[in-house]
């Protein structure tokens, strides 16, 4: 019986080791780095709060935050509207449900690298498919990726295209938890389609809406490969995302202390934003 005592610890040992090396240590080391200057090669140098003061005075840092919120402001509403609409239609009594679902879901499983390279062509100024279609129907070409006012919006639309299939599925799951008897009762009362949707469906799928908002927010703050491939953060830094900026500070300039400070702050910001969203959405219902 005695050997049984340590057996559970043996089972969880790999997890604990992983936790210490890749989660716990990095969090504390990250905090340590925010007070130091380091390029990995030369010795670590204590700089007090210099990284923080530098961060708050760094125009590129504010630009990255501004860009991220701009992305979220376009991405989240688009995501919610399209995912909910597609899910609501798929939830009707229709044929080829499986086909539609599979089609919507395809971009979700494909690498962001593929989606980005593909959309880079679709959004190209001269020979991009979308501009060619615009010209065919007699409109002007749009500088989807070269106009600083539009570029982040284009990326937000692309991200919506990539992810919306997942949220369609999540909303479908949510919609199916609504008891049919609620709708039947509302029909007897003479409720319109819109009224049923507004007063029965929406409140009941509030948890799913919350989840979609949170996941999209985390996704927005994690945006990296899309601007990295498409625009390199340009034009005029209009698509510089938080993670891309961390990456540039760390691996183009080797400012490890400063990039750790950025990472620390962005992580903190994500948790704050998520908490605010949680409070707002949950009391809103």
């Amino acid at each position: 019986m005695k050997k049984k005592k340590w057996l559970p610890y043996l089972f969880v040992a790999p997890y604990l080791l992983h936790l210490i090396v890749f989660v716990a240590f990095p969090v504390f080391f990250s905090l340590f780095l925010t007070f130091h200057k380091w390029n990995i090669i030369s010795p670590v140098e204590y700089v007090g709060v210099a990284n923080y003061t530098r961060m708050f005075q760094d125009r590129m840092f504010w630009k990255a935050i501004f860009n991220t919120f701009k992305f979220l402001l376009i991405h989240i509403p688009l995501q919610l509207i399209f995912a909910l609409a597609l899910a609501e239609f798929l939830n009707q009594n229709i044929k080829f449900k499986g086909f539609y679902r599979a089609a919507f879901f395809l971009p979700v499983i494909v690498s962001g690298v593929v989606v980005t390279i593909l959309w880079q062509q679709l959004l190209g100024f001269d020979s991009g498919l979308i501009n060619r279609l615009l010209v065919i129907i007699g409109l002007e070409k749009v500088g989807w990726l070269i106009d600083p006012n539009i570029a982040m919006g284009s990326i937000a639309v692309m991200a919506t295209w990539k992810n919306v299939g997942l949220y369609v599925i999540l909303f479908l799951v949510g919609l199916q938890t609504v008891p049919p008897s609620y709708y039947e009762a509302a029909e007897i009362e003479g409720a319109s389609h819109w009224q049923k949707f507004r007063y029965i469906t929406l409140p009941l799928i509030n948890p799913t809406i919350f989840m979609v908002v949170i996941l999209s927010t985390i996704g927005g703050f994690s945006l990296f490969i899309e601007p990295y491939i498409m625009t390199g953060g340009g034009p005029l830094s209009s698509t510089l995302s938080s993670v891309l900026y961390i990456y540039k500070q760390a691996f183009e300039y080797y400012h490890m202390g400063y990039s750790a400070t950025l990472g620390f702050f962005f992580a903190f910001l994500i948790l704050m934003v998520v908490m605010i969203q949680k409070k707002y959405i949950e009391t809103n219902d």
């Binding site: 090396v21 890749f22 989660v23 240590f25 990095p26 969090v27 080391f29 990250s30 780095l33 990995i40 985390i218 703050f221 994690s222 938080s242 993670v243 961390i246 760390a250 490890m256 990039s259 750790a260 950025l262 990472g263 620390f264 962005f266 992580a267 994500i270 948790l271």
Partner: peptide, 15 residues
């Protein structure tokens, strides 16, 4: 699970 990866990215690279 709720910990954003941005915080561990740089330290993990240094590791």
């Amino acid at each position: 699970m709720t910990l954003p990866f941005q915080i561990t990215l740089i330290p993990n690279y240094i590791t």
